[in-house]
């Protein structure tokens, strides 16, 4: 059942993005930025945490979870370290994703040539 929820949730997010992409002049860059901001805003009252609990992995795959994890890490540190914790913990949960994306991009760019 959790697979069905994952399918429906991730699919719906992508569907919304595709509808925006086809019917406006916004580029994919606009859409991913928009989804990150929405994901970050949904963490103000722990809404995204509840979505992740219900849906599981499917909610962690769309880019909205990137914004959610940014806010989530910031607030987890802010609980211990006070106001400055927002800056200290910003990358706590997303560091693995960003680091590995940069690292793999660099390594693969050494070995592969662009296909034109």
């Amino acid at each position: 059942m959790i697979y069905l929820y994952s399918f429906l949730f991730a699919g719906t997010i992508c569907l919304i993005g595709q509808i925006i992409l086809d019917n406006t002049k916004l580029t994919p860059g606009h859409i991913t930025s928009l989804f990150v901001v929405i994901g970050a805003s949904l963490d103000i009252f722990n809404i995204y945490d509840k979505i992740v609990q219900c849906i599981g992995g499917g909610a962690l795959v769309p880019i909205t979870s990137f914004g959610h994890l940014l806010t989530h890490g910031a607030m987890a540190r802010a609980a211990n370290n006070g106001f400055i914790g927002i800056a200290m913990g910003m990358f706590d949960f997303t560091a693995s994703g960003i680091t590995s994306a940069i690292f793999f991009a660099f390594i693969f760019s050494l070995f592969f040539k662009p296909k034109d």
């Binding site: 697979y3 991730a10 699919g11 992508c14 569907l15 595709q18 086809d22 499917g58 795959v61």
Partner: peptide, 27 residues
């Protein structure tokens, strides 16, 4: 002519499959 309906269905299915793959890997 952009086939909007087809684009929407394809992105729904592909996005959903990526979500299922994520949940599968998680478990």
């Amino acid at each position: 002519k952009e086939r909007r309906l087809r684009n929407a269905i394809v992105s729904f299915i592909v996005g959903g499959l990526v979500g299922v793959l994520g949940e599968f890997l998680l478990e």
